[in-house]
């Protein structure tokens, strides 16, 4: 077609804009943990924006104990083949070879996750070295910025995975939002000291102070079990939610999944949240986080 100009100068993959931009497309949505292709289809049909492929949901990892690792490639590929929405998968913290494997399988996002047993107690993976973007958990602003400095293209507040208890998700998201709000009030002199306190690069601290938000998308994770939980996290400032055990550990996963999607979109409309909350069957049995021993708190993993 002569009227159309075609430019082909150097398409570039794996840029920060392409990685962060991918997360922008997920905003307002729900990312669901799935362990089989069948569950992935249920999640997609319910309106999930992406699925997290893993071998056991966090509630089962908790129950079973032992070392939790990257999932079987066959299982991940089975899920990739089953759905057209993006597929994420988890690597252990600092286990960059698991991340290399996940990238070679063609997953759309890698979650360097505290839910799996950490492989390195000092270092996280160098996420700039990958074409596949990474999402990482954080309990506070400093942790979020350290992950972004390492190349994370998306952040999720950690919460406490596999508990069905939203209290830690609220704590971590509020912490991050509070620290961002505080930075907004700082002048240039104070930002240097703030960077030291946050143990994060000054440039990133300054950028957050100017933007009033993280330079990447911020989701919430770890303990969301009901439509109201999801809406709560949205009203507190999360741009979307991860739901792990909450869906497929409940009585009627398909219905609950669709209900959480609705409540995430209309997070500020109590009538719609009420309708979405009706007759969902049993929610997952929760764990009281106060009684959780320190060693069993996944949120403490990551440095």
């Amino acid at each position: 077609m002569s009227s159309t100009l075609s430019e082909n100068q150097g398409p570039e993959t794996g840029t920060a804009r392409v990685k962060r931009g991918m997360a922008e497309q997920l905003k307002g949505g729900v990312i669901m943990d799935v362990v089989t292709p069948e569950q992935a289809k249920i999640a997609e049909d319910a309106g999930a924006v992406a699925v997290m492929a893993l071998e056991r949901v966090p509630a089962d990892i908790r129950k079973d104990g032992g070392v939790a690792r990257m999932s079987d490639p066959d299982m991940i590929e089975g899920i990739i083949d089953a759905v057209s929405i993006p597929v994420m998968a988890k690597s252990r913290i600092g286990h960059f070879v698991e991340a290399q494997v996940l990238q070679s399988l063609g997953v759309d996002y890698i979650d360097e996750s505290e839910v799996l047993t950490p492989a390195d107690e000092v270092n996280h993976s160098d996420k700039w070295a990958f074409t596949t973007p990474f999402v990482c958990g954080a309990t506070n602003l400093g942790e979020a910025l350290r992950r972004i400095a390492e190349g994370a293209a998306m952040i999720r507040s950690k919460g406490e995975a596999g508990t069905g208890n939203v209290v830690e998700a609220v704590r971590h998201l509020r912490q991050i939002k509070n620290e961002i709000a505080r930075l907004r009030g700082y002048d240039n002199h104070e930002l240097y000291a703030a960077a030291k306190e946050l143990r994060a690069p000054y440039e990133l601290v300054k950028e957050v102070a100017e933007l009033g938000k993280l330079p990447v998308v911020l989701f919430s994770a770890g303990g969301v079990a009901t439509p109201a939980d999801a809406a709560l996290m949205r009203q507190l400032g999360a741009e979307g939610v991860f739901v792990g055990s909450g869906i497929f550990k409940s009585g009627d996963p398909a219905k609950r999944a669709a209900a959480i999607v609705k409540a995430t979109t209309f997070y500020d409309d109590p009538k719609i949240i009420a309708d979405a909350s009706r007759n969902l069957g049993e929610a997952m049995v929760g764990i009281n986080c106060d009684t959780l021993p320190e060693a069993e708190r996944y949120a403490n993993r990551g440095w």
Binding site: V18, P86, P133
Partner: peptide, 30 residues
């Protein structure tokens, strides 16, 4: 998803009819 999965997502300059000046920075994501 014609251009592929996330690993194939890319940026490239694109000439768009009706948009004058430099080509548009095209960000293609899945």
């Amino acid at each position: 998803n014609a251009f592929g999965r996330q690993n194939e997502s890319f940026e490239a300059a694109v000439e768009v009819k009706g948009v004058s000046g430099e080509p548009v920075e095209g960000v293609f994501i899945r």
